[in-house]
């Protein structure tokens, strides 16, 4: 697998392993994974977008803070964002526009995106990967 994500076992919450060839791919795949948790089916209907800027101390925190920011926007706007276009992204800051759809309901209530076990690193195939745990 060169990109994407998969679910790992967790007793009470949702744990994923997300991968990407680049930091942009990794962030984008993590966003898609979160969107898929919020709404399992295909997204359609009224589109929406939001600008987003995040600063953090290092890249793993930046990923978690990015997802947390999008989660807040989802709750506030009643929307699921599954795509992102980066204006810039480095290990400590990003500016982007996230794109998605308005939804009537969410399938899962994600309370928070946690830092627990998250650590972006290169795997043996040279891909970037990290675990992300969503608190339900």
């Amino acid at each position: 697998m060169l990109s994407g994500y998969r679910r790992l076992k967790h007793t009470s919450d949702i744990k994923i392993l997300v991968k990407g060839e680049t930091l942009e791919n990794l962030f984008s795949n993590a966003l898609q994974a979160m969107a898929k948790i919020l709404v399992r089916g295909r997204l359609a209907g009224r589109q929406c977008q939001a600008n987003i800027k995040v600063n953090s101390s290092e890249e793993t925190s930046l990923l978690i803070d990015f997802l947390s920011e999008v989660l807040f926007l989802s709750a506030k706007r009643g929307a699921v964002f599954d795509k992102v276009k980066f204006r810039y992204l480095d290990s400590c800051q990003l500016s982007a526009v996230v794109l998605g759809y308005k939804v009537d309901r969410f399938d899962k209530d994600i309370k928070a995106v946690t830092y627990h076990e998250a650590q972006i690193k290169r795997n043996k195939k040279g891909e970037l990967e990290t675990v992300v745990i969503f608190d339900l």
């Binding site: 101390s57 925190s61 947390s68 807040f72 309370k111 928070a112 946690t114 627990h116 998250a118």
Partner: peptide, 25 residues
């Protein structure tokens, strides 16, 4: 949201203070 805000703030606090964390949470 309050928990999210403050876990992040305390992480930044730890970085500023040079603390070694066994778990960021």
């Amino acid at each position: 949201q309050i928990a999210t805000d403050y876990v992040r703030e305390m992480l930044e606090y730890s970085v500023r203070k040079g603390q070694r964390l066994v778990d960021r949470e």
